[in-house]
Write a protein that binds this DNA or RNA. Structure first.
Length: 575
RNA sequence: GCCAGCUUAGCUCAGUGGUAGAGCAGUUGAUUUGUAAUCAACCGGUCAUCGGUUCAAGUCCGAUAGCUGGCUCCA
């Protein structure tokens, strides 16, 4: 049997699906059915509202169509013939799509079984070659993705050459589900949100807050080590600030309504930069002071549409690990390079080794001198090169105020997350008239770079939970060790062991419940405790504990000194 | 915001229009345990909220809120 590219298989399956849908719902109007990174979809317009049961029915019909082994027949029509064919069938979306095909290009159709579709192809030869497929979900989707267009129904599915590969993919979906930070966040008692507080606003429970504080402390230390200074700024600022910054012109929809204080409008901050700029402007700055690197874990609030909120990954109140670098033109190249290196080392500390940069260049509508864009872009490019990374370029994908590099990191189960962003800003220095006095005694406009390494603390925490599957490395664990005395007779020995570990700075707890050892082990494992120390009569008599490690399993008996040494070594190595 | 679905105990979930349930968790007691669940009793509910239909609503209808999957958006 001939082998086909995955996209061809998936796109062919989408035709088979459309064919099945046409059979079950003859009045259906069809849009398009492309393959995607994970599978395929097809958009339909129909009276009936598709349910999960419908997906099963569609799948059954699909299986039949596949087994009937229809050929994918290719034919071309003139534009007039195509219009006539689609018009007769009342396929208004297809007619719209037909208009997209430039004149002079071939207008091709594929027919397989009872379904004929305007389609570029390519396809497998016969419906029996579509491999193993599964329909996954149904969702609404605007025609052409535009909000004012009609809402179509989209069926998502996936397909692979073999059943084995399909099963492996479905298993990965299961694995992702098990790691879902919303589920683990509840089970491990890390965070929640409350209807009464409001959607998209996160409540950090003691354990979640402990982990957050621990990596925030690390973050702060690393920033000091890397030549940053920390600043703190308020949560609200007067409307004048946001007028000057331009936020009220460009992003008002995402900002919350103002509050009146003594007759002045104040807005909750959607960004930290205007405040940092105010610090800059408190005095005349000399080139000798630059570069300035000011970092802040600054909590901002942005209006997000209700439908997009998602656990910790998309919220309305979040903390940016923000920093602004203000420097001279001569400094930007090394500054950018340092930021990139800093980011890579930060991600490495959390066990993310696969990091990929995306460079976004000048869009059509933008501000700033051409020479600045060129220099900025060049510095971004060189930094990537110097780091020895492969970089994808998004032409015209930059913000209107400057070019940027975004980093995507790959987690433990291979998913990519967009996190770090390094952005030039040619807009705010102008708007706030930021200057420094150069060597020549004249005023100059500094370069300004916004950067966030982790992105937002909330989102980063969500990513971490899924990356580690809830099993945080020892340095982040609120509880690093749980001590289980087998019976009440070992309580004193367990207390002594606990005290010894605690005195060495280990975060240890005891489970003195009169449950069986097996039951308490189960609970400790479910709580993802990295070390469990069991103390029975034997261990108590010699002052040791039987140690079970989350990573290595049973590792034998250790006294408190030996265990502390092992745990400290894990902490130092961020294991 | 839009489309669809969902919302029953802290959690996971049963429940023909006719007396609100189970397991786990929690509390109490018994048990003194050797590496993933000891036993028992008890506690726990305005069935998301509000309104409607009905002799009767967890169940049918409507509105609102929240959640889920997408779409759009993400400075």
């Amino acid at each position: 049997m001939a082998s086909f590219p995955l996209e061809t298989i998936r796109h062919s399956v989408s035709h088979v699906m459309a064919c099945a849908v046409q059979e079950l719902f003859p009045e259906t109007k069809f849009d398009i059915g492309p393959s995607t990174a994970d599978g395929f979809y097809y958009d339909f317009d129909m009276e009936a509202r598709l349910s999960p049961e419908d997906l099963e029915k569609i799948e059954t019909v699909m299986a039949r169509i596949a087994s009937e082994d229809h050929a994918f027949e290719y034919f071309e029509l003139t534009r007039e013939e195509a219009e006539k064919l689609l018009g007769e069938k009342g396929q208004q979306y297809k007619l719209e799509r037909l208009k997209d095909i430039p004149s002079g290009e071939k207008i091709s159709f594929y027919k397989s079984g009872g379904f004929t579709d305007l389609c570029r192809g390519p396809h497998v030869e016969k419906t029996s070659q579509v491999g193993a497929f599964k329909l996954l979900s149904v969702a609404g989707s605007y025609f052409r993705g535009k909000e004012d267009n009609p809402m179509l129904q989209r069926i998502y599915g996936t397909a692979f050459p073999s059943k084995k590969e399909l099963d492996a993919y479905l298993k990965q979906l299961e694995e992702a589900k098990k790691r879902d930070h919303r589920k683990l966040g509840r089970e491990l008692d890390l965070f929640s949100s409350a209807d009464q507080v409001g959607p998209g606003l996160i409540l950090w429970h003691p354990k979640g807050a402990f982990i957050r504080n621990t990596f925030e402390t690390f973050w702060k230390e690393e920033h000091y080590k890397n030549g940053y200074e920390l600043v703190n700024t308020p949560h609200i600022g007067r409307s004048d600030l946001w007028h000057t910054s331009g936020h009220l012109d460009f992003y008002k929809d995402a900002m919350y309504s103002p509050m009146d204080i003594d007759g002045n409008d104040y807005f909750v901050k959607p960004m930290n930069c205007p405040f940092h700029i105010q610090i800059y402007k408190t005095k005349l700055r000399s080139y000798r002071e630059l570069p300035l690197r000011w970092a802040e874990l600054g909590t901002v609030y942005r209006y997000e549409k209700s439908g997009v909120l998602h656990g910790l990954l998309r919220v309305r109140g979040f903390t940016q690990d923000d920093a602004h670098i203000i420097c001279t033109p001569e400094q930007i190249e090394s500054e950018i390079s340092e930021v990139l290196q800093f980011s890579l080392s930060m991600w490495k500390a959390f066990g993310f080794k696969d990091v990929k940069p995306y460079l976004a260049t000048r869009p059509e509508k933008s501000v700033g001198e051409e020479s600045r864009w060129t220099q900025a872009l060049e510095s971004l490019r060189k930094a990537v090169e110097k780091a020895g990374l492969e970089c994808e370029v998004d032409e015209g994908g930059g913000a209107f105020y400057g070019p940027k590099i975004d980093l995507k990191v790959r987690d433990a189960i291979g998913r990519e997350w967009q996190t770090t962003t390094i952005q030039f800003d040619f807009n705010l220095p102008e708007r706030f008239d930021m200057t420094y006095i150069g060597e020549d005694g004249q005023k100059h406009r500094p370069y300004m770079v916004h950067r966030a390494l982790l992105g937002s603390i909330e989102r980063f925490f969500g990513i971490l939970v899924e990356h580690y599957a809830g099993a945080f490395p020892v340095w982040l664990c609120p509880e690093q060790l749980r001590i289980l005395p087998i019976t009440e007779k070992q309580h004193d020995a367990a207390c002594a062991y606990l005290k010894a570990l605690k005195s060495k700075g280990i975060r240890a707890e005891m489970d003195l419940r009169s449950e069986t050892v097996g039951s308490r082990i189960k609970d400790a494992r479910n709580d993802r405790i990295p070390y469990i120390a069991v103390i029975g009569e034997r261990e108590a008599s010699v002052g040791t504990a039987a140690i079970r490690s989350r990573r290595e399993g049973q590792i034998g008996e250790l006294d408190s000194w030996g265990l502390a040494e092992k745990i400290v070594s894990d902490i130092d190595n961020k294991i």
